[in-house]
Design a protein around this nucleic acid. Structure first.
Lengths: 175, 175
DNA sequence: GCACATCGTAAGCACATGCCTACTAATCCC
DNA sequence: GGGATTAGTAGGCATGTGCTTACGATGTGC
């Protein structure tokens, strides 16, 4: 039944034995490359960079009160997203107003046009992703999405290992 | 039954409606970060870079006849892996001999010690990965691994869209 | 009022990456 | 034999990134 299942559940590797499945990173890295390569044309068509798109995505979900918080949320550098925000603001996709309660901070919000663009782009991107997912058996696709969602949540800032912070530079991608 | 399932199968998005799941890349990118962050200490402990580890991994699976082929297999730059190979060779982890049949090419192979190190490192890495996977329900874990394996295979060189080649530079990671 | 901390911003450094251009050695083809 | 081609190597260029420092504006605590 589960004969041709991917081996690799917990405890599948006898101590000292050879691993029986590829490393997760070895599989995740090419997948991310594929996904980003598929996104790129869509983003290009709308004049968005990956960072700008990440801003649009995360700005919509939760109201962000400081640029630093936004930067941390999308794992960007605090000083590097300034140009991104400048561009998005100049195109009226986001609004950046001083917080009345603390005029040091800038209240970031999506404009109606920003929300519209975000919807358009995201729908197009997910349409392409669905073509990929369609190649999976329905059962695997469901488990894949659930597992992916669960595992990615462990990487969110604030979850998992606390105290690690922003230490260390970004390692080169394997494979 | 499938009430709390992740929405996002093919055709779940009515045209014009809002997407109902996060973008795949938005979930895959943090996951890759987590996985690489978990690998790094193990690699450091054995004096390996990500690239060096990728070389050890891919050199073991299939005999590689040219460095260029290896570079393409691990999606590295042909000229950049030379230093990596130099280091691995100087540590007797790989062997690099001129091909008798074509002395321009270098036959690359893992030494016994290289294979031993690869096993040690990979086992340690997968042990950490299994701790992550253990947090998933068994059914999802199986589907996740099968789906991940299938999707990552689509990104392999030679599969999927041919003719794309090495065009374009590496985009920045979203989120 | 004044020292200190925080937010946004600008500028720069160090480093890794992808790409390109030689250059040598070796091979292939005519 | 001689020209074109290929593998490996070395070097450089442009870019993107993380990190640090500095500065002005603002807010907080004493």
């Amino acid at each position: 039944m589960a004969e041709n299942a991917v081996q690799g559940g917990t405890g599948d590797i006898p101590s000292g034995g050879r691993p029986t499945r590829p490393d997760l990173a070895e599989m995740v890295a090419p997948l991310l490359r594929t996904l980003m390569a598929a996104e790129q044309p869509v983003l290009d068509a709308h004049g968005l960079t990956m960072w700008a798109y990440a801003v649009l995505l995360h700005l919509d979900e939760t109201p962000i009160r400081t640029q630093a918080a936004l930067a941390e949320a999308i794992r960007a550098d605090k000083t590097r997203i300034i140009a991104v925000l400048d561009d998005l603001e100049s195109r009226a996709l986001i609004a950046r107003r001083p917080d009345p309660k603390d005029r040091r901070a800038r209240l970031l919000s999506l404009t109606e046009e920003g929300r519209r663009l975000r919807d358009t782009v995201q729908t197009a991107i997910q349409k392409g992703e669905d073509r990929l997912l369609a190649q999976l058996p329905a059962a695997d696709r469901d488990g894949f999405l659930r597992g992916l969602q669960a595992l990615s949540a462990l990487a969110e800032p604030g979850a998992g290992d606390p105290g690690q912070g922003t230490t260390g530079r970004r390692p080169p991608p394997p494979q």
